[in-house]
Design a protein around this nucleic acid. Sequence first.
DNA 1: CATAACTTATGAATGTGTTTCATAATATTC
DNA 2: GAATATTATGAAACACATTCATAAGTTATG
Lengths: 304, 304
Amino acid sequence: MLEVRHLRTLIALAEAGTVSRAAERVHLTQSALSHQLKALESHYGLAMVKRHGQSVQLTEPARRLVALGHTVMNELQTAERDLAKLARKPTGTLRIALECHTCFDWLMPIMDAFRKHWPEVELDLVSGFHPNPLALLADNKTDLVIGSENKARRGIVYHPLFRFEVLAVMPTDHRLKTKRYLAAGDFAKETLITYPVPEERIDLIRRVLKPAKIHPRRRTTELTVAILQLVASRRGVAALPNWGIKNYVDYGYVIARRIGKNGLWSNLYGATTGEVARLPFVRDFLETARRECFAKLDGVVPVQ
Amino acid sequence: MLEVRHLRTLIALAEAGTVSRAAERVHLTQSALSHQLKALESHYGLAMVKRHGQSVQLTEPARRLVALGHTVMNELQTAERDLAKLARKPTGTLRIALECHTCFDWLMPIMDAFRKHWPEVELDLVSGFHPNPLALLADNKTDLVIGSENKARRGIVYHPLFRFEVLAVMPTDHRLKTKRYLAAGDFAKETLITYPVPEERIDLIRRVLKPAKIHPRRRTTELTVAILQLVASRRGVAALPNWGIKNYVDYGYVIARRIGKNGLWSNLYGATTGEVARLPFVRDFLETARRECFAKLDGVVPVQ
DNA sequence: CATAACTTATGAATGTGTTTCATAATATTC
DNA sequence: GAATATTATGAAACACATTCATAAGTTATG
């Protein structure tokens, strides 16, 4: 009766908090998940979710099954990794180029795990700034580019990773703190603190400020913590992924506000050549990245 | 892609040795399993079985998946046990009455495991000989009767366990050792060594010798090893389950022959009242018994 | 060596069971 | 109170696992 699909569903539900969002995550409809849950409940004679206003809470039996799900999914991934190694000696390189600075934050633990799982594969980060990272793929200077671009190009395949919201970060006593969300005009008089990259690489500028013809002062620094430091000490405002600043907001170090009524959302993709996309260890890397980000990063949803 | 059903199939295949017998074990057709295997092979790009004449041998990838299957099935059973405990405090008793002597051999380790898994349940063996064990159920003197009877009776449900072959056991130098199988007449001049139970309880007598009006001498003893001892020292022949004597035959201590052209087969059932059948720990016990017996006992097949 | 009794493989048909669709019901937000 | 979320549910659609029918290949046996 219990199948892997039920475990996937329950894990997604535990992470997403609502049936609808869990459904997106497992690429099914809300209805399908509702039926699945009903089937589980009637089979075990136990409630799996307790409706709690807008969201659902998992019951103890459901949490037990989630625990089962985690161990099963781990065992399964390990086994499939072993099969991939049996199919072919997994030698090769995985050079990763990053288009977005904050990605470092989630990438590190995943690279560490990868090194353990595929000791035979040479893992590398392509360092330095590159005006056109996708060109590195064609030039065989990298194997994987992580960024938000997904324009169709011949020979390049995009692997959707996840979608996240970019929030405006401000000092706790900022004059705009009462606003529910910020409009382009609100940035006119601000200093924008960013990573040292061209304007086109900064979502807020490219997609919100430039179209509104607003050009705030800019100040740049390399590290996320440095940006937050500057924001907290009232040197300006920043725009950062919600999962990157969650801890600082929860701690009351800075405050965050939505950008525009529906928020400023960004998709993240992994881009490879078609050939590289077929390598088992690359697929494993991408799958792990997705899984771990959905599990560990807050407010992350599937692409689209 | 990989689902629990594939793992069940591969485990059954590892235990049964042929696709057809594995299919019986998982209650599917041979064709279904063949399709499943084909799907696995094309999905992983790896062969799962190597045809080896009449039987199949699992390849390394398949064995890896069987290992995965074992851990997954264990985790799964543990989780479902936990769910059952969450549904209701599992207090109660499980008193087991045995209709067949040899069943002790496989029952012991299963009872040990049960005690670990359900410490709250009082486990007991109903000792002594009982002319009509099924009556004990109605009298509430036992909760479970293990035997080969399955005549429909109101209020009693039978849970198929497994089917095994009863073989004639003889000293290595017996005059009948050249025969491929023994007929009823062959027993006429033999001494039959059995457990100390009435004739009707001995399959060989009830189903083979009595219909042929053959009544050999009988000599009885309590323990299986004692029976084998007597056989080996030429005091007579015995009829025992194949899995009970496998080691002694392999070691060359005694020899075993089929009884009748198609062999003498016996079905084993667990009998309970309808009420007891619903208790989670009883279902768990029966499921574990089946699983372990199929895994550990040689030449055991599903009932029917 | 031929036949019987086993195996497994395979394509087409079947049928079960999951998913989607459409919609109702209910809660939350502004 | 309207708008926008959420989940629940029965019926319809669809996917896909299983069965059926059958072929083709081994192994045993007289």
